[in-house]
């Protein structure tokens, strides 16, 4: 039996490796660190399905744009005005769901 049939889920990196991402030259997400330091909810950390937002020890948020599903959950759940700036990546870049 394969690993995914067990109750323990596949490692997150392996899960993300199943999906194709074409990396844009410029990030399409920006996070304004100062606004995050006062944030108590950290909604983006739990809700982002690609786990792009990681809290740092000094109370900030580290983010990555490269493996983004481009869903928009992060900016919608963020309750700090202007903390997350989000647009679609440049044409041709980003997530590419496969034709089988």
């Amino acid at each position: 039996m394969s690993r995914s049939s067990e109750s323990s889920p596949v490692a997150f990196e392996d899960r993300m490796a199943t999906t194709e991402f074409r990396i844009a030259s410029e990030p399409h997400i920006s996070v304004h660190g100062d606004s995050c330091r006062g944030c108590t909810t950290r909604a983006c950390v739990t809700a982002c399905p690609a786990k792009l937002f990681v809290p740092t020890s000094d109370g900030g948020i580290l983010f990555n744009y490269e493996q983004c599903f481009e869903c928009g959950t992060c900016y919608l759940v963020c309750n700090t005005e202007g903390a997350i700036t989000w647009a679609y990546p440049e044409g041709g870049a980003g997530v590419v769901y496969r034709r089988s």
Binding site: M1, S2, S4, D14, T19, F69, V95, Y97, R98
Partner: peptide, 10 residues
């Protein structure tokens, strides 16, 4: 059960 993940998305 036993189905390997071939693509994940959101």
């Amino acid at each position: 059960a036993g189905g390997d993940v071939v693509e994940y998305g959101a």
